[in-house]
């Protein structure tokens, strides 16, 4: 009796630990954004996969509908996270801007509407030119 009880208890612990890991990854990403740390959160699908493994072990120990549902949900979440992060990958830069060469000629405008061209890059100061996606 006590062996069955211990096994059920261990299985339940693994189930809840596995379920807890997925939201932990999401909470980690929220915390990361609050800290302005802009890196790819590969730990999110990694934690979801670990959760899948733990729930899988708990299901192996005792087959219940709830454990099957938890496993399906975690597989879905982990798969979605992997696909979403993969879809956000960018190709390597292969454009005309090259190390050791002048920046290509261009025309744009400063915020006050005055022209900004290639000639504006040479001067007293070095320049970090950051292309961002916009105010949205």
């Amino acid at each position: 009796m006590s062996t069955i009880s211990r096994s059920a208890s261990r299985g339940r612990f693994l189930l809840w630990l596995g379920i807890a890991l997925a939201p932990l990854g999401i909470a980690g990403y929220v915390a990361q954004l609050c800290l302005h740390w802009l890196v790819v959160p590969w730990y999110m699908p990694a934690l979801a996969c670990l959760g899948v493994a733990l729930v899988g072990v708990s299901l192996w120990e005792r087959r219940t509908v709830w454990r099957v549902l938890a496993l399906v949900a975690l597989v879905g979440l982990g798969g979605f996270e992997v696909m979403a992060l993969s879809a956000m990958r960018l190709p390597r830069y292969t454009g005309p801007v090259a190390l050791g060469k002048p920046f290509p000629s261009f025309e744009a405008k400063l915020a006050d509407g005055t022209p900004f061209t290639q000639a504006g890059l040479a001067g007293d100061q070095h320049t970090a030119m950051v292309f961002f996606r916009g105010r949205w």
Binding site: Y93, A98, F103, L121, A122, H126, A128, R133
Partner: peptide, 15 residues
């Protein structure tokens, strides 16, 4: 939109 990219250009305008 722009692809997020950063260039460093020195005072002579060289990348």
């Amino acid at each position: 939109t722009d692809v997020p990219t950063t260039f460093l250009v020195d005072r002579a305008g060289i990348v």
